[in-house]
Write a protein that binds this DNA or RNA. Structure first.
Length: 593
RNA sequence: GGGGGUGUAGCUCAGUUGGUUAGAGCGCUGGCCUGUCACGCUAGAGGUCGCGAGUUCGAGUCUCGUCACUCCCGCCA
């Protein structure tokens, strides 16, 4: 028999009446009545109330124990009186009358309480993460994370995928994020890099003929943190498949996401088949390539209307002639909204650094259509009719207008769409709205330097037959590149890969890489592609973000066991830290300062 | 690198227009209490008001600088 426990702290039930039991756990809470002490004993599984009577030989010792001390108790499990039952506890019908007690782990004064629903500052939580993790909500989040990973592993195996590990020490690559570097002792002056993702390896696994691969893969990127982005490291469900087209990937992922999200959340998935939205459409209709489709508002382009004689809005006309666009957001049945609602949105837009949001509400006065609001009178009836057609609007609807250069107006209209929907409470928090964003451009142009670079992954394959691709206008080339977005959060991106070396050289050439550079920087890949590479593609959903959505958390640290802070420091382990001169010498490194 | 927010007891916070000895709850220490489950009652300890300058007769409060944490932009799948 185990010396520490016969039952865990969530096990005793009425059926255990009068049994002798041994429990071990943490003192969660103590209620000292002077001649009677109640102890809530907690472990991973739950809580059991223990009672110590005055006549117990351990009474005085137990009275003095601090919260969070780890103890072992042995005693009789007895049924509580009817009026003493605690319905909120699984073990609430029972209590254990303590005969003997042993302290297994002492506890000093706590820097932060475990028993409390209060919020604590991040530094204290991270420094004493082991205490923080005892607290219920985050404890459950971490357990959820574990269950999600197990579930995914199961599903992937069932679907015929094989799980492989790929190297953690690998080569630095010029694309993408900043690398974490690791100096090589045996190769003085040279460095390994931690993988930003197992991108090249998973493609090599396909070239090696394994057909379907997955991995819960650690990824390392030396970039600044955000609430939904850990500094340094995060996990992806990395997937790659051979002999597939985009639709094959979509089928697998839709099944997986539907299974995972319906298994671990009560929220409703709005559409089991995820809508497909082209990148260009997404930017027009939502102003972003990660739209929250729970938000019903849609953005319309009304630039041409403002150029017409029927609209007398001179400021916008002038801006349009200088290259600006006008985008409109329609809200339905908002004619009854108070003036403060509209002005509030306008004021908010100005706080965002925009020149504001113009607005009008469509009215019908004696069968004459007109616009109400500050700019309403600048619209003729014909203009109102045209506007209604453009924005699919009806009498009683309101329309907000943003004007600016393409990227500015997209940005403003995107956040305005969120803001307005929140004000009008249009977002159903109890749903998941997935979508695919497809048809990403292969290249993009830096607005400052005009340099053409890959917009996403350089290993994606362009759409269409190679001989039909318009290499002279690279910005028009679309790739089989796609993202999954859920509730406005980008969950993953993937692509059908380019498995043709000649085409790859050509595309890298457009981005300014010579053949020699490609051979040098991507030697493993490019070499492999010339020895019989299957067509292949994949995707890599962010695991941390999936768990965030399932746990309904806004911050990635709430689903990460031992996260670093925003400054990329581990306050508990004191990383990063100084190292000895001897260590540096072995690595052939010298500090500059 | 830039912008916003926060920083007062071990923890979470309050602190009025700049005015006497800086408060509350939890925790801690002591006393009382046999049915609590946020136990109750009672007494007490605990403060470089992030740090440094400045203004002022007087600064937790105002000004400047600085540091830490956090959110956002840049950056990043």
């Amino acid at each position: 028999m185990n010396i520490y426990r016969t039952h865990n702290c969530n096990e005793v039930r009425a059926s255990n009446s009068d049994e002798k039991v041994t429990l071990s756990g943490w003192i969660h809470k103590k209620r000292d009545h002077g001649n009677l002490v109640f102890i809530d004993l907690r472990d991973n599984y739950g809580m059991t109330q223990c009672v110590v009577q005055k006549d117990s030989s351990h009474f005085e010792e137990i009275e003095k124990l601090k919260l969070e001390t780890v103890i072992k108790i042995t005693g009789s499990c007895i049924k509580r009186a009817a009026d003493a039952i605690n319905a909120e506890l699984d073990t609430g019908e029972m209590e254990v009358v303590v005969d003997s007690m042993e302290v297994l782990g002492t506890c000093g004064e706590l820097p932060m309480p475990v028993f409390s629903d209060q919020e604590y500052s991040e530094d204290i939580r991270l420094k004493y993460r082991f205490l923080d993790l005892r607290r219920k909500k985050i404890h459950q989040n971490i357990i959820l994370r574990s269950k999600v990973i197990s579930f995914i592993r199961d599903k992937m195996s069932q679907l015929g995928f094989l799980e492989f590990q790929t190297p953690i020490l690998t080569a630095s690559s010029p694309e993408g994020a900043r690398d974490f570097l690791v100096p090589s002792r045996l190769n003085p002056g040279k460095f390994y890099a931690l993988p930003q993702a197992p991108q090249q390896f998973k493609q090599l696994i396909m070239v090696a003929g394994f057909d379907k691969y997955f991995q819960i893969a650690p990824c390392f990127r030396d970039e600044d943190a955000r609430a939904d982005r850990s500094p340094g490291e995060f996990y992806q469900l990395d997937i790659e498949m051979s002999f597939v087209e985009q639709e094959d990937i979509f089928t697998i992922l839709e099944k997986l996401m539907n299974d995972v999200f319906s298994q671990f959340s009560k929220k409703k998935i709005i559409s089991k088949v995820f809508p497909r939205i082209s990148y260009d459409d997404a930017l027009l209709k939502y102003g972003t390539d990660k739209p929250d489709l729970r938000n019903p508002l849609i953005i319309y382009d009304t630039t041409d209307l403002f150029l017409s004689e029927e609209v007398k809005f001179e400021i916008f006309k002038k801006l349009i002639k200088q290259g600006s666009l006008v985008r409109a957001i329609k809200t339905t049945k908002t004619s009854e909204q108070p003036r403060s609602f509209f002005d509030g949105i306008d004021k908010w837009a100005k706080e965002q650094g925009a020149s504001g949001l113009a607005y009008l509400t469509i009215e019908n006065n004696n069968n004459v259509l007109s616009g109400k609001g500050p700019i309403g009178k600048l619209f003729s009836e014909a203009a109102i009719k045209e506007l209604m057609k453009l924005c699919e609007a009806e009498v009683g609807d309101s329309i907000f207008f943003a004007c600016g250069k393409k990227s500015e107006v997209e940005k403003l209209s995107a956040i305005a769409r969120d803001k307005i929907a929140n004000e009008l409470k249009l977002i159903d928090e109890n749903t998941f709205a997935f979508c695919w964003i497809v048809d990403y451009p292969m290249f993009e142009q830096d607005p400052v330097t005009n340099k053409i670079d890959f917009s996403h992954n350089p290993f994606s394959i362009p759409q269409g037959k190679t001989e039909n691709i318009d290499f002279d206008n690279p910005l028009n080339i679309k790739a089989y590149q796609y993202d999954i977005v859920c509730n406005g959060i980008e969950l993953s991106s993937g692509a059908i890969r380019n498995h043709k070396p000649e085409l790859m050289y050509k595309l890298f050439g457009i981005a300014g890489y010579s053949k020699d550079q490609v051979d040098d920087k991507f030697s493993g890949m490019i070499n492999a592609l010339s020895y019989g590479a299957p067509p292949h593609g994949g995707i890599a959903p962010g695991l941390d973000r999936i768990v965030m959505l399932l746990a309904d958390e806004k911050n990635i640290r709430e689903v990460t066991m031992f996260p670093m802070n925003q400054g990329a420091q581990d306050l508990m382990m004191n990383a990063p830290s100084d190292v000895t001169d001897q260590q540096l010498k072995e690595l052939n490194l010298k500090k500059i300062k």
